[in-house]
Lab assay of single mutants.
Amino acid sequence: NARWTTEEQLLAVQAIRKYGRDFQAISDVIGNKSVVQVKNFFVNYRRRFNIDEVLQEWEAEHGK
């Protein structure tokens, strides 16, 4: 399903906090979204969920 429920959106943001840009890991956490759908989520929801800021926090924690 290409549509993202609110629950899936929140799950994705939590997974980004945990896995950074590991699209496969994020896809696995959500369970019903492909890697391509996760990559599209990054692009389409970047502003709404401040994904750049979430990634900066992840990179700071993981030394990337």
Rank of each mutant, 00 (worst) to 15 (best):
N1W: 09
A2M: 14
A2D: 15
A2R: 13
R3D: 15
W4F: 04
T5F: 03
T6F: 09
E7S: 10
E7G: 10
E7T: 12
E7I: 06
E7N: 09
E7C: 05
E8N: 02
E8G: 04
E8W: 03
E8Q: 06
Q9Y: 02
Q9N: 04
Q9C: 15
L10P: 01
L10M: 10
L10H: 04
L11I: 11
L11T: 10
A12H: 09
V13D: 00
V13Q: 08
Q14G: 13
A15P: 01
A15H: 06
I16C: 05
I16E: 02
R17P: 07
R17I: 02
R17D: 03
R17T: 07
K18L: 10
K18Q: 13
K18I: 07
Y19V: 03
Y19L: 06
G20E: 03
R21M: 15
R21Y: 11
R21F: 10
D22G: 02
Q24N: 05
A25G: 06
I26S: 03
I26N: 00
I26E: 00
I26T: 01
S27F: 01
S27V: 11
D28E: 14
V29K: 04
V29H: 15
G31N: 04
G31F: 00
N32W: 03
N32G: 09
N32F: 07
K33R: 08
K33L: 06
V36Y: 13
Q37W: 02
Q37P: 02
V38D: 03
K39T: 03
N40F: 06
N40Q: 14
N40R: 12
F42P: 02
V43W: 08
V43N: 05
N44D: 13
N44F: 09
N44K: 11
N44L: 10
N44A: 13
R46I: 07
R47V: 13
R47F: 12
R47Q: 15
I51A: 09
I51Q: 08
D52Q: 05
D52H: 04
D52N: 07
D52R: 04
D52F: 05
E53H: 11
E53Q: 14
E53W: 09
L55D: 04
L55Y: 09
L55N: 01
W58E: 10
A60E: 14
E61T: 13
E61A: 08
E61G: 11
H62C: 10
H62N: 14
H62L: 09
